[in-house]
Structures are given as structure tokens and as C-alpha cells.
């Protein structure tokens, strides 16, 4: 069965969606991601959608759910790499994805994740490396 790979990079997970996902594949990605978050205790998830030429309401909802699920499991999520034509389209569709944190590319997304995790770390002041 096809699967979207989820890679562990340091304390983060990296999901790069490289195919036009059908609905079942999108649902299985949600399940896989939550399982992997628990198994690895990752502190953040970076979701790269730069290869997606379309985000419809189903995929948009799935991205929102993945971000919310990551939050429920104590991790931060950032969606990166949205194509400009996709950004124009989702806004016109009526879906602003305001509940999802986004960044322009993987580098900026990584930096954002690091700052988000550092911030929540200093608030918790436990399970924290530096502060």
C-alpha cells in the first residue's frame, strides 16, 4: 500500500508530500503522523507541500487536522512551501488556513519550529536541553 514517508530529523519530523494524494492516502498520513509523533516524542513537525499543485477543502482540512493533532500531542506543526497559485486559490475558495502555521520554505519553517519549541521549553522549564 502506498504511504507518504515521515522522516525523523533531530527532534523534528519531516513530511514531504510529493504526490497528488487521494483522500484515503491523506487519512492514512494523519494516522501515521500521530503514531510517529508518539513513538519518537518529536517536538515539531514540518509538512512540506511544495509539490502539491492543488489544495482543495479536503486536503486543507487534513492539514488543519494534522496541525491540531500535533498540538494535542505536545508538538508544533508548520506547513511550508505552498505554491503561489495554490495560495491564491485557497483564499478564493474561502479557506484561509489561519489555524495552521506556515512558512515560505523548509529553511524558514525549520527556524520557526526551533523558535516555537524553544519558547514552549522556557515556559515549561522541564524536559529542556539548554534553558
Amino acid at each position: 500500500m502506498e504511504r507518504i514517508p515521515i522522516l525523523k530529523v533531530g527532534e523534528f519530523l519531516l513530511v514531504s508530500i510529493q504526490v497528488d494524494m487521494h483522500d484515503r492516502l491523506a487519512m492514512s498520513l494523519q494516522d501515521d503522523l500521530t503514531a510517529k509523533l508518539v513513538a519518537t516524542r518529536a517536538k515539531g513537525v514540518l509538512i512540506d507541500i511544495s509539490s502539491l499543485d492543488m489544495v482543495d477543502s479536503f486536503i486543507g482540512r487534513m492539514l488543519g487536522h494534522m496541525a491540531a493533532m500535533a498540538g494535542a500531542l505536545g508538538a508544533k506543526a508548520v506547513v511550508v512551501g505552498m505554491q503561489p497559485a495554490v495560495a491564491i486559490t485557497i483564499v478564493e475558495l474561502g479557506m484561509a488556513l489561519t489555524e495552521v502555521r506556515t512558512a515560505l520554505n523548509v529553511d524558514k519553517g525549520m527556524a520557526l519550529l526551533q523558535s516555537l519549541v524553544a519558547k514552549s521549553c522556557s515556559m515549561d522549564n522541564h524536559d529542556c536541553h539548554e534553558k
Binding site: D53, M54, V55, D56, F58, A85, T89, I90, L93
Partner: peptide, 17 residues
């Protein structure tokens, strides 16, 4: 244009679903 393609493709996906 790419934007036209993306819009039509997205609308098509909504109706098909």
C-alpha cells in the same frame, strides 16, 4: 495560466468529491 489551472482543478476536485 498556472492560476487558472489551479483554480479549475480545485473546483473540479470539490465537485468530484
Amino acid at each position: 495560466t498556472l492560476v487558472e489551472q489551479t483554480k479549475m482543478m480545485t473546483a473540479t476536485s470539490e465537485l468530484a468529491r
